[in-house]
Amino acid sequence: MHKHEVRGHGTVDDTQHLSALERIHGPLPQLMIGDIVMIRHKKSLVRKFLRKVTESYWDHTALIIFTKNPEKGYSSNIIAEAIQYQAFDAWRRGVEVHKMDRYLNDPDRYDVGVKRCMNVSNELRDHVRAFTLMNVDAPYYRLPLADLALASISRTIRKFVLKRQRFTCSGLIQKAYWNAAPWERRHMFAFRDLGDSPIELQELVSPADIAKSDACEWIWNRH
């Protein structure tokens, strides 16, 4: 049996069941439906510009919609995410459901962190999941390479771009919590300043806003 020192988590007897990123950052805690997965793409130019413009380590977000349950036959956490695969319209997808392992097992291309909205009932988590599933196949707003490239070198252009750029991946998460929460608690799940109207808030929130927000806490690989 192998013994490994896992950062921050002492000695783990057998890390063979761990994903590649868990071997680096330590085992994932028990995840819950509605946990927010932060993702960094290491080999994407568009994402690099996006990180620079939003001043964040992270450039993409996803939501846990099923937590792994080997007894029921599935051993990976399942995420919903809004994806832009390519720059061309015809190849752009939208909200999709995938295994979280696709990110956890490829440390050369991705880094992953997890945040959690605390004091959330299971009922609200189920509503978040239902809202997210009802948005499967919703289209993706384009991340414009040229605008982001210019914004990364000019503060003026950066303000202009960020003012109007919609982020589907993080917008999906904001909308899911905003719509699932009872109206009197919605302000607790606003991931950016409430200076925005609710509609603006749901459209314009970025992965960086979620990463920096106090509305959810880091539970794994804080950045």
């Binding site: 099923f66 349950n69 029921k72 036959g73 599935y74 051993s75 990976s76 399942i78 459901v97 995938h98 295994k99 696709r102």
Partner: peptide
């Protein structure tokens, strides 16, 4: 049906 759902989730991707 629960087991079939588990199979779906296991086979995604």
């Amino acid at each position: 049906r629960e087991r079939i759902l588990g199979f779906f989730l296991d086979k995604i991707d």
